[in-house]
Simulated assay, not measured.
Amino acid sequence: MEATATHLPQHPVATSVEPSIVNSSVKVLAESTDLKSVPSEFSFVNEPTGSNSDSIPIIDFTLFTSGNPDQMSKVIQELGKACEEWGFFVLVNHGIPETLIQGIIDAAKEFFDLPEDEKQNVSDPIKYGNGSVITTSNQKIFLWKDLLKFPLHPEFHCPVKPPNLREILFEYAERSRSIAKTLLQGLSENLGLEEGYMEEALKLDTSFQLFAANFYPPCPQPDQAIGLPPHTDYGLLTFLIHNGVPGLQIEYNGKWFNTNSPQNAILVNTADQLEIFSNGKYKSGKHRALVNKEATRISIVIANGPAADAIVSPASQLVQRDGRQLYRPMEYKEYMETQHNNRLNGKTNLELLRIIDS
């Protein structure tokens, strides 16, 4: 059976960015020997079934730097099509060493294995907790995961422990920004925009880049809890790597599909600001994170966005070409704050900004 979004509350109001601890971390809760069922605070009934697909687009990053104009043109077309149709693609041959990727995952595990008091001994803008959502029925539900997150750019932040995290994360963040910039240049060309227009309009030199490490421990009732409910991301391009344990599903044509990205590949999804900037041509990919009974899943997310003070609106050339503007402008910082607000009356940010013909 193929699961669709109708099996879940359509719009949990927002994922809390102020992670909250329910007595202790979800990791500690999951390791409790007498845990037989999901506590009521975490109860989120869902249908976790999804289909497998070999159609999720694969983008070979080396084609961007091959120097072959035909290959470059072809991969830019493929990239644009992936963002239009799926809002997701698997990036291969990106040049980030496998040892660096594995190092990030291992360091994240080291953090989550720290004693609870050491993990909680972080200060703004570094946040640690498990997060929550507010459903349309105004019910607060905690997520079955522990979360560590903090900004990487334009100011770099990192917890003190584990001590090896800072160096490898700094390198991974820089490499990720460089790859994101190349992909965005390709998408700008695919949109037919003037060279440099996107970079200037979105102030990419001071782009806001965020790190998030997600720890999803085994759950006694995977259909009664959720790692992350269906949502879209608020930036431009989100990069995801993981420890090999499946759990992320993406929605395509109203159906849920499992993602099984190859070893050392990066799963990339188009996010809200790119849908807005492209005047709706590119799709912000909806996805969700499920949990399981058997194994801990660790995922590492790098959210690449515009500058915090960039006012994002549909590119003027695209509005002229399309004959109408589909989204209202909003400063990216305000967009993130609104996304984090638990009072959106059941509507996503994209819906609130979408201009509806009267």
Rank of each mutant, 00 (worst) to 15 (best):
E2Q: 13
T6W: 11
P9M: 02
Q10D: 11
Q10P: 04
H11R: 14
V13Y: 12
V17I: 14
V17P: 00
S20C: 12
I21E: 07
I21V: 13
I21H: 08
S25T: 15
V26R: 04
V28L: 14
T33V: 13
D34V: 12
K36V: 12
V38A: 04
P39T: 10
E41F: 08
E41V: 10
F42G: 04
S43K: 15
V45S: 13
T49K: 15
G50V: 06
I58R: 12
D60S: 11
T65K: 15
N68Q: 12
P69T: 11
P69V: 11
Q71H: 12
Q71I: 03
M72A: 12
K81M: 13
F89Q: 07
V90Q: 13
V90H: 03
V92F: 05
I96R: 06
P97F: 09
P97I: 09
E98G: 13
L100G: 01
G103C: 02
F112W: 06
F112R: 04
K119L: 06
K119F: 08
N121E: 12
G131F: 03
V133A: 10
T135E: 02
S137H: 10
K140L: 06
K140Q: 14
D146P: 04
L148N: 02
K149L: 11
F150K: 08
F150L: 09
P151A: 09
F156P: 04
C158D: 06
C158E: 05
P159Y: 08
P159C: 07
P162W: 05
P163D: 10
P163G: 00
L165W: 03
E167W: 08
I168Y: 09
S176H: 08
T182V: 15
N190G: 15
G192Y: 10
E195T: 14
K203R: 12
T206K: 15
F211M: 03
F211R: 01
N214G: 07
P217G: 05
P220R: 01
Q224Y: 06
G227E: 01
L228I: 13
P229W: 01
P230S: 11
T232L: 00
T232H: 09
L236H: 08
T238G: 04
L240K: 00
I241G: 02
I241K: 00
Q249G: 01
F257S: 07
N264Q: 12
I266Q: 02
V268I: 15
Q273G: 07
I276Y: 08
S278T: 07
G280E: 05
S284F: 03
H287I: 02
R288H: 01
N292D: 09
I298W: 00
S299A: 07
I300D: 00
P306H: 02
S313C: 12
A315W: 09
S316Q: 15
Q317Y: 02
L318V: 11
Q320L: 14
R324V: 09
Y332Q: 04
H340W: 13
N341T: 10
L344W: 01
K347H: 13
T348C: 04
N349G: 15
L350M: 12
I355D: 02
I355W: 08
S358L: 14
